[in-house]
Design a protein around this nucleic acid. Sequence first.
DNA 1: CGGATGTTTGATGCGCGTCAAGGTAAGTGG
DNA 2: CCACTTACCTTGACGCGCATCAAACATCCG
Lengths: 251, 251
Amino acid sequence: MQSQDAAELLISALSLHGSLSGGDETALRDTSFRLHRYARGSAIARAHTSPHESCFVISGLASREIIMPRGARAFVGMYIRGDFVDLHAFLLDSLDHDVVALTEVVMAFVSHTDIGRLIASQTINRLLWRFIAVDAAIQRYWLASMARRKASDRLAHFLCEQYIRMRAQGLVSADGFDLPLSQALLGDVIGLSAVHMNRSIQTLRRTGLLKWEGNTVTISFPRLAELCGFEPSYLNLQRLATSGVDGTCRD
Amino acid sequence: MQSQDAAELLISALSLHGSLSGGDETALRDTSFRLHRYARGSAIARAHTSPHESCFVISGLASREIIMPRGARAFVGMYIRGDFVDLHAFLLDSLDHDVVALTEVVMAFVSHTDIGRLIASQTINRLLWRFIAVDAAIQRYWLASMARRKASDRLAHFLCEQYIRMRAQGLVSADGFDLPLSQALLGDVIGLSAVHMNRSIQTLRRTGLLKWEGNTVTISFPRLAELCGFEPSYLNLQRLATSGVDGTCRD
DNA sequence: CGGATGTTTGATGCGCGTCAAGGTAAGTGG
DNA sequence: CCACTTACCTTGACGCGCATCAAACATCCG
């Protein structure tokens, strides 16, 4: 994996949300990306720092976490291939959260000078801006889910979201996707204790909505979506022909 | 209140986050703002629509709400004077949430064509973009709060945030600010039943951290912040000399 | 083989939702 | 002016959902 591959990945991630001109693509290919590999559990960015570059995920699973005053950590986001994780550093005084590698992760870094140069193109500007807006929409749905759904529905909703987002990146095959997280950690992500996470998983397993073998999760998407009322339009992936709740792919 | 006043308000809101050039200010003053008054409870924008203009709050209190599949509504944001509420409409395919007037509200609307014109200025572009990023940071903290804090701490954290944000807009006097919401509605906002909201309020009242008379809430900010571990840097209002948890204003 | 890491199950208790009733204050019409 | 309504606050009783503590299984690995 090299800098050029990072450019191609970014181009394809941006293209999920809009059409880049030839000039835009050239500008992106002319940008240099610093690649860096992180071991599972290591910090990619730290709260209360002001990095001079921002990064997106090349491979692996990353998360955003807020460290609470008494030391507990709350997960506020989960990021896969193609996700720009901390564009915020470009805009805000300092980061309000940590970014952590949940698995082994490769990240691509772009300097803020380069971002400043890239957004001279209104198209790139809008698309990067849109990344933040989609990320915020997902956060809103997490918040609504946290406030209103009970444990098993929250899990179902999370899995549906993950499924659709991973599918958009071509990371789903036969309704199965990789989720190399322990139940305890996943419980942290959706705000459950390890024990109750386990029980919620079993609830879904018993009704055949979910299989979880090793690191691979296989879901019955339409039934899970129906169960928890998952409605994917907030992900803004319509260009991808995510045609409604049945999740069929036109290909 | 007229279109020019809206421009001045927007200029001052943007100036909380960065310095506008003379040209930027002129461009903003040359923009036309459509003002509209909404009665308490009425919809300002609807989920699943794609408005061709975006709006910010001139006066009153507005909220973002997600209507859940079974009809419950979850609050995912609360907006006061100077807050740009649905810049998202400019970026996303369609709105993922409703925007609702919690009190009588005056909103100022800018057409997306005008926004497209305004963001030709890199400064305005960055500052509008930053609005979304700060909004997202607040959402992250709501999410963390929802996931990890118990009822009374969540209330305390919400009040601290509201206090600091309202103070930044000059809406606080003598540690008191206007919060013309019923306890039941406020419960909805932070994800509590009306009954438990009432009990949480009483918990804070008993220890003298909170007074609530009519529509005016008066808090003992330092003690409340200490209680729930409120740490205001995520609001990105440092320019305002919000110097730490003690909340002193340098003026 | 032992130790580390993760899953599963049981028991117990608290936080908060829910139902229900009573209390207060403001507004409305006769 | 008083009956009546409506909106909101307050308190009690009860039960469910989930956290927590504890311990019994797996796996995997050095």
